[in-house]
Simulated scan of single mutants.
Amino acid sequence: MNIIYFLVGIIATTIGAISGIGGGVIIKPVLDTLGNYDISTISILSSFTVFSMSIVALLKSIKNKVKLDGKRTISLAIGSIIGGILGKNLFTLFLAALNNNLLGQKIQSTTLFILMGVVLILYINEGKIKGFRVNNIGFCALIGIILGIISSFLGIGGGPINVIALMYILGMGSKESSIHSIFIIFFSQGSKLLSVFLSEGFSVYNLEVLPFMVVGGIMGGFIGSYLLGKMKKNNIKNLLHILC
């Protein structure tokens, strides 16, 4: 069974590192379907895996001297840290108020389905729907907070939503938005995991498959970053269309 979780980790994060979707949007539904863990544990497994991938992808980007967008990037990062913590706390309150793991899983899946539908429409109509380029760092921080909350709450990394927001709101191209999306994932998921560690800790979760998924995430980060450097912008766009 461990090999299945390893394969889920490496396949999802390879795709995620190329496209900027992170991989959580693939990991979470698959783990839900496998049905071996509760909603909270799945969220932690997904977060750890995409966080591992994001570390590798960002280090590769730095090594390859990929330029980030200065003040806007820093604002997004700060916002995503705040959003990651807020999203984790909202998720905890949500589960406590609901007190029903299965129902919570269905609500989460439905929310994700709706969001992905919106993302798909925007991808299909790229070029037809006019976006705009925001340079105000306060607004960029707000975008980072919102994206961090969504990714942390849903436990998906938030990649596809990040990419769309970066393309339509901040005026980034597909390749640029992919790299910046990984940047947001690193900070939002990192802050979420730190928040969990400082509150209830990880011992309350069944993380027996975590090493296999993290190794998959690290390998996926290496493979995806390598392929991203070789791919053209149109190929990345086509991959995003297929995924959504």
Rank of each mutant, 00 (worst) to 15 (best):
R72I: 15
K71S: 13
L45D: 02
T49F: 03
G22F: 06
I21D: 01
L76S: 07
N64S: 15
A77M: 14
I78R: 07
G70R: 09
S54L: 02
I44E: 03
G23K: 05
K71Y: 10
G79E: 13
G35E: 10
I55T: 03
S54Y: 05
L58R: 06
L76M: 14
V66P: 04
V25P: 01
N64L: 12
S80I: 05
S46Y: 01
Y37Q: 04
S46K: 01
L45A: 02
T33Q: 09
N64M: 14
R72M: 14
A57W: 03
S52P: 05
I27V: 11
M53F: 01
L58P: 01
S75P: 09
F48C: 06
V56D: 01
G70T: 10
G23D: 06
G79V: 09
I21A: 08
G79S: 13
V56T: 07
K63N: 09
K63T: 14
G22I: 05
N64D: 15
I44M: 08
L59M: 10
K65Q: 15
S43A: 11
G79W: 06
V66H: 13
N36F: 14
S46F: 02
P29G: 12
G35L: 06
K67M: 10
S43E: 00
S80P: 06
V56A: 04
A57L: 06
L76Q: 08
I62T: 11
I44F: 01
L31C: 04
F48D: 02
K63C: 08
S61E: 10
K65S: 14
D32S: 07
D69I: 12
L31F: 14
P29M: 07
K67T: 11
T41P: 11
I44Q: 03
I42P: 01
S80C: 12
S47W: 00
F48V: 01
S52Y: 00
L58T: 12
N36K: 11
S61P: 12
V66C: 08
Y37F: 15
S80W: 10
F51V: 07
I27Y: 02
L59W: 03
F48K: 00
F51W: 11
V30N: 02
I62S: 09
I26T: 06
L76I: 08
T49D: 08
L68E: 13
S47G: 03
S52M: 08
T41Q: 08
S52L: 05
